[in-house]
Amino acid sequence: MDELEVKTISHKKLLNRLYKKEAPKFFETASFGFFVYLMTDLVLFASLFAVYAVLEGNTFGGPSGQQIFNLNNVLIETLALLTSSFTMGLAILSMKKGHRNKVLLYLVISFLLGAVFLTIEMNEFSHLISIGDSWRRSGFLSAFFVLVGTHGLHITVGLIWMAIMFFKVLKSGLSESNARRLTLMSMFWHFLDIVWIFIFTIVYLYGVLGL
């Protein structure tokens, strides 16, 4: 099959190849390695959670979680990320049906919700730093900034990836490679939401309870 033939393959044919007959196998094999990566990333987060749990009480005269956490903002963050994860799933469903414009729309929605999440988190961080409660203040704050900051860094990477995928789909449609990339990106995004469940519970809810 030469290049010209690949380019002129009809959309229907491509869809058939990608999403009907060989679909489950295609997406499974294409994403297995990435799944393994996500699991190792989860081990990274688990070690940061362990560090946080150990250092949580070491406030060294500084503030505890109870004093610095604003649970309302955290709830908005959580809902934004959860909805973003959901719309990303809808983007994948639209991709499997071959609706390019819907994929673009859901990518934009997911991106905006992710941006809302990141903005609130950055505001929280800059507020804490401006009142002198940065990672240098105490062991608790160091662990807090490293754990939540690592998650925020992942979110930033996810947003950049999403922006790139938006223009890739805009330019070359739902090609085979774009379909694969979108699938991996959606897994990454769902994974970040899963990590956030535990940050929400262990860092913020436990923190507010004063555990």
Binding site: L71, L75, T78, L79, L82, T83, S85, F86, G89, L90, L93, I197, F200, T201, L205, V208, L209
Partner: peptide, 20 residues
């Protein structure tokens, strides 16, 4: 996806309200 979303929403909100 919808079931997953609604269930997640339910558990997030109930955890939040139980805490506050």
């Amino acid at each position: 996806y919808l079931i997953g979303f609604i269930l997640s929403l339910f558990f997030t909100l109930s955890a939040y309200f139980i805490t506050i």
